[in-house]
Structure formats: structure tokens, C-alpha cells
Nucleic acid binder design. Structure first.
Lengths: 347, 347
DNA sequence: TTGAAAGCGCTAACAC
DNA sequence: GTGTTAGCGCTTTCAA
């Protein structure tokens, strides 16, 4: 069992003062060669881990973190994120962490920019944000960098040179998972990729999923399947989808690349008795209803709650305990059916 | 934004000393009626959350936790638990927590009892254990209770009157998940539940899984399926299984209730070209190979690593930060196929 | 029954 | 450059 060393121990062993040890440990300069050597000699010998608790006590700082997330009223997909944020607030509040949520309209880049401006004025210690608009996100990331504000992102990754942390899912691979699922339900036939274009989602997400999906069937290289693609938009959603289904009598499976899978299920249920396998995304209540009824076969869970929660947790533990924030954390691609949907932990 | 109150603030507001406030907060007695009233009056008004960090600094106690887990050499299923334990050690060591692992032979109740005796002699602050032997587990739980040692359990739940925490999976429901999966792969035929009896696993686990599995098909109430059951044991495993498959030409699906699913896959692959859908448990390397090859269709992930890691994490956070330990934490029932197997987080 | 004071490990300000 | 010291919020001891 190893002894727990303190800086006092080190100071005594090295024959210097605690202050000097602290200076050496944190490269605060103003240390003579000889003192440096003495301290380092001791540090080499022992396994010193500064007590992360004591470190924090002193500063007595209240860390402020802002979360920037699309308004759940505009798109219910984001609601679980709020729960994750609230969990984090409850859990971390006692540590003197101040977490503030700012919403933006996910259909408006202007709203996104304004929300970020608001946040920047607050000068928080860190920001956790959903960078759904690629161009604008790069701009604000640059701003945060200049302001010296730490940034973590979740939901979707964007390319940014400087340090930035990401929590989300491997969308390409999740497309492959969907493909495999359909493949195991359906022996053959036409299989459709349906994009429900909400005109705000940067096409990148859906493209990644689509690529993964196609990649699976390409590798399979089987003449049993034909892959179709269709884009749907809301005003004439139902008529276009109905027409599409009518025109493809061999349609046996559908992959929907967004959380609006239930909209497709609604239509299928309405217009045909034929079994069409359906795989989509996210545990919205409407989706879950269809899952239990059997209209939707599988949902892929993107862990929105976890993403937000972990994003905050990592930031706080970084501030409080000097923990390293994982730079690119890919959450598992959870396959959900009617039987395990009720046992999902933390959404 | 609320002010962060300290006991000093409260003391000043109430017109008493910090010591008295502390006594009131922790019911340490020796407080006069009047002082109690004064302090409570203040406490009612403000939202006081003691700083969990400072609380811990003083005591400077090294918490000692023992983990009792089956020897991974005897059954490789337990290997991920070690990783979880090591993660916890790495992460929590700096907080002055001492975690010690003790193995027992999962085929020997004697070994289990001896290991516990060893642990009890050490008088740790808490114990995290896998109570695979029901009767013996109840005995040692009673011992720990008398010694005032906190106990958390994982992997399988046992009925014990006094306080005890559990982390694991809903086995009944996981049986239903397996059933649903087979149901979605296979349109009809004979479906077999195979128990691979390793004679140490308390039959309870497998029974729960079996019950859930049957429950699903009973509810389905379809004449398309016939449910068969068979127990296999190692010496004549292959011959018995071969005979079983030969005798059931309509066999279209198999559910294996243990992590030894790959053993069944090996045999199927060897003796027949017919597609038999196979669903089993756990991400052993051999299972993953079959999953990728297609001999196994789905695996259900029981999160062994997470179970051990969370068990330790909860105990430590309880000691350090007074967090409440969830008394019965059911981890999600993860469905794994060839595509999402590589993205599983923390095993 | 109560208040005062020391001290946990670390940081930071301040003398020397 | 370096040692000393005060102090973070809380617990615990000790004297009153």
C-alpha cells in the first residue's frame, strides 16, 4: 500500500519549502537550479498525486458554464438534453458550479449567432454547444477561442483546428447498424432511405448515415436488394410518401435518417397492410408508440441526454479535479426494440 | 444567481458559532433548544448545501474498498470487470481511495466463503461483491452487516433484508429482448432455449432469462413457433447438441442463456449449412468473431465492466461527497450486432 | 451547552 | 529566489 504524499512531505524530503515545491510543480518560475534539482529528485522517486480536493478548496471560484442548445419547443428531439442538463445542475451545483442554458432556434442561423453573442457577453469559463450550423459554428468557435473560453460540443462534430471536445455518435457506423438491422429482418426486396428534410439540419448528418447505410449493402453485394432514396418535406409529405410506396410494390424496408420516423410510420399504417420493415432514430414518444405496436421495428438511440450530461460533467471535473476531457467521445450506437425500450438508462 | 452560503454565514446569521451550526447540521446533540431554533430558522430561509469538497478535506481518511469477484482465469466473462476496477483505481486513487481486488473460484462455494473471510479480516470501509452463491452470500452479507461494513453487489441480485445496493440487469426482460430479436429474424419454426450448465451459476439467472423468453412467445400466442428447451453440459456437449439439432429439422432459432454462446455457434457451423438464427450473451472475443462472421446474429451485452466500475464509483462518491448510492440500478439491455460491436463504450 | 481554535492539502500573497 | 503565512469550508478537539 503506497503512502499518500503531500507537498509538505516533498518539501521536507527535498529540504525546501512548500512554496518552492508548488512553484516547481506548476512551473511558476523563480526557482533556482539547485532547488529545482532537489525537488525533481524527490518527485522522481515517489508517486505524487496532488490532492484534487484540496487544490480546489482554495480557489473558492464559482465556475460558470453556458449550454447552447436548440429550443426543444422547436424540435422535441432536444428535450432529453434538458433533462441531462438539469441532472448535471442538481449533481454539480453543490460544488459551486453555475450552469446556464441558452436556447436558439434550430431553423435560424441568426438565432444561433445571437445566442452565442449573448453567451460571449457573459464571459463564462466554458461553453457547451450544439454546432448544428457549420459555418456559423466555426465563427463562434473562433470567438470563444479569442476570449479564452473553453468550448465543448456535442451532437455533431465539426472540423475546427484549435482544441475542442466532442461527444456524439459515429453517424456513418450508425447507418451501417440500421442497414444490418433491416438486412436481418428482410430477406430481400427494395429498401428505401428516406430523408425527412427539416431544412435546418445541416445535410451532413443525414449524408453520413446514408453513406454508412449504402456502404453496408454495397459490401453485401447481393442482388436480393435494391437501394432507393427519397427526400420528403413537410407540406406534401404524406402524398409524396404515399406515391413513393405505391410506385414500389417490392418495397420491404425503410430507413429513416431522422427522429421523425413516426411520421413515416403513421403514413405506412394508414395506407397499407403490407409489412414494411422500418428502422429509424431516437426515442421520441411517438416513435416509442410505434415501436411497441410493431410499426417501427428498431430505433437507434443517439443518447441526447447523455451527450449533454457528459459534456457538462467533463467540463466540471476538468475544472474541479484537473481531469482530462476526452477529445472525441463516441457514445455507443444503441439498438432499441419494443422490449428494451423501457430499460434505457438516462434516456 | 443564488449566493453560496457557508456554515460561517449561517453562524453569523443565527448569532451562534460555527461549531454549533455543525452540531445542528449533523445532529451531534448537545445543542440547546434556543440555539437549535435560531439555527433552524436560518436554515429554513436559505438553501444551504455544504461544500462536499471541504467536508472531505479534513478527515484525511483513506477509504478502503474490497472487490470480490470471480477469478477471470476460471471464467473469462469476468475479465471486463477487472478493467472496470482498474479504471476506478486510476480515476479515484488520487482522492485517497484504496481499492483491493480479491478473487474467488466461481465453481466453489468454499472459495467464496474463504475470500470473504479474508476480506472481513481486513475491515475495509466497504465491499463490492458478486453474490453468485445465494445461500453463502446471505451469510456473508449478514457478517458484513454486523461488522458495520457497507456492501454493494453487482451482476445478480439477491434478496436480503438489510440495506444493500445492486447494479445489474433485468434478466427476465433480457430474455424478452432475445425473444423479440429471434422473432424478428425468423418468421416461424422451432425455437430452442439452450442452457449451458456450468454447474456454478446459480440456476436463478438462467431461469429468469428463460421465463422472460417464454413469456414473450406466450404473449405472442402464435402457432408459428414451438419453443423447445435443452440443457447442455461440457463433457458431451457437442454430441448432445448435434443430436438435438438432427432431431429437430424445423429448428430455425436458438437462444443461449449464457456467455458461452460461441460454443453453440462452433457446433452449428461445423455440422450444418442451414441458417439457424442465434442469439446469446456477452461480448467474449469468441462470440464477437461469430457475430462478425454471421454465425451469431445478436448478443446481449450485460455491461460487466460498467457494473464493476459503477459499483466502485458510487461507493467512493458516497464516502467523499455524501452522494446517495442507487439501491437498484438496472443497466440498459444492449443489443449488439456485427455493426455496433466496435463502438461499445467501456466494454 | 457552547465558542474558539487548530488543522486537513493546496495556493497565493508577501516579506525577506 | 525563497520561506512564511493566511485562508478556502468544514470537522473536531478542547477549554470554558
Amino acid at each position: 500500500m503506497l503512502k499518500k504524499y503531500t507537498i509538505r512531505d516533498i518539501a521536507e524530503l527535498a529540504g525546501v519549502s512548500k512554496g518552492t515545491v508548488d512553484r516547481v510543480l506548476h512551473n511558476r518560475g523563480k526557482v533556482s537550479e539547485t532547488a529545482l534539482k532537489k525537488v525533481n529528485k524527490v518527485l522522481d522517486k515517489i508517486d505524487f498525486k496532488p490532492n484534487p480536493i484540496a487544490k480546489n478548496l482554495k480557489s473558492n471560484k464559482v465556475y460558470r458554464i453556458c449550454v447552447l442548445v436548440p429550443d426543444p419547443i422547436k424540435d422535441v428531439y432536444w428535450k432529453p438534453c434538458l433533462n441531462g442538463i438539469n441532472d448535471a445542475i442538481l449533481e454539480l451545483g453543490a460544488f459551486g458550479v453555475n450552469i446556464e442554458t441558452v436556447f436558439f432556434n434550430p431553423t435560424s442561423t441568426k438565432s444561433f449567432l445571437e445566442a452565442n453573442l449573448l453567451v460571449q457577453k457573459k464571459l463564462p469559463d466554458a461553453v457547451l454547444l450544439v454546432p448544428i450550423f457549420n459555418t456559423e459554428a466555426l465563427i463562434v468557435l473562433e470567438d470563444y477561442k479569442n476570449l479564452g473560453i473553453k468550448v465543448s460540443t456535442f451532437n455533431n462534430n465539426i472540423e475546427f483546428g484549435s482544441v475542442k471536445n466532442f461527444i456524439g455518435q459515429d453517424l456513418f457506423q450508425s447507418g451501417r447498424v440500421a442497414a444490418k438491422l433491416l438486412h436481418c429482418i428482410v430477406p430481400k426486396g427494395d429498401i428505401a432511405i428516406l430523408h425527412i428534410n427539416e431544412n435546418y439540419e445541416n445535410a451532413v448528418f443525414m449524408q453520413e448515415k446514408e453513406k454508412g447505410f449504402e456502404n453496408y449493402f454495397n459490401e453485401l453485394n447481393s442482388s436480393d436488394f435494391t437501394i432507393l432514396k427519397e427526400k420528403l418535406k413537410l407540406p406534401d409529405f404524406e402524398s409524396v410518401l404515399t406515391k413513393f410506396i405505391d410506385e414500389h410494390p417490392n418495397l420491404t424496408g425503410i430507413f429513416v435518417t431522422t427522429s421523425k420516423t413516426y411520421q413515416v410510420a403513421d403514413v405506412i399504417q394508414k395506407i397499407t397492410n403490407k409489412k414494411i420493415a422500418l428502422v429509424g432514430y431516437d426515442l421520441l414518444n411517438e416513435n416509442i408508440k410505434h415501436l411497441k405496436k410493431g410499426t417501427i421495428d428498431f430505433l437507434i438511440h443517439q443518447h441526447p441526454r447523455q451527450q449533454a450530461y457528459l459534456g457538462l460533467k467533463f467540463l466540471v471535473e476538468h475544472f474541479l479535479f484537473d481531469k482530462k476531457i476526452p477529445s472525441n467521445l463516441l457514445l455507443p450506437i444503441d439498438i432499441i426494440n419494443s422490449e428494451n425500450v423501457n430499460v434505457i438508462m438516462n434516456d
